[in-house]
């Protein structure tokens, strides 16, 4: 039986190990705070986002998600147009069970 190797079992094993690693590392635990160095940035967009990172991380997070989603969709639509122009039939395909 190889079921003992299943993914949930491994996950549980790792989760069980983590607290012991934490204890072994002792009391030096402190949050790591990162400040983006806006002094060295010249471009306005970069400066805006780096500053937002320092000042309003929630807004930065909303921006990150929105921009990622928008960029993904735009690229998706764009690529779709390009692929359509190749003339390949992408609506149906042979069912290929490997």
């Amino acid at each position: 039986m190889r079921k003992f190797l299943s993914i949930p079992t491994l996950t549980a094993a790792i989760l069980a190990l983590l607290p012991s690693w934490a204890l072994a590392a002792g009391p030096k635990a402190a949050d790591l705070v990162v400040v983006a160095d806006t002094r060295v940035l010249e471009s306005g967009v970069m400066k805006y986002f780096a500053n937002l990172y320092n000042e309003n991380i929630l807004l930065f997070a909303v921006w990150a998600v929105v921009l990622t989603a928008v960029m993904g969709s735009v690229l998706g639509v764009l690529m779709d147009v390009i692929m359509k122009s190749t003339g390949l039939d992408l609506t149906k395909r042979k069912i290929l069970e490997h």
Binding site: T38, R39, E55, W63, V66, L67
Partner: peptide
């Protein structure tokens, strides 16, 4: 889908204008 994207963009633009007022300084 297009409507959701448009809504998200409008929301983001609104917040951009709200937050562009000033910038924090950094020192090292």
């Amino acid at each position: 889908m297009k409507r959701i994207v448009a809504l998200a963009m409008a929301l983001a633009l609104g917040m951009l204008l709200a937050a562009a007022a000033h910038a924090a300084e950094v020192v090292q």
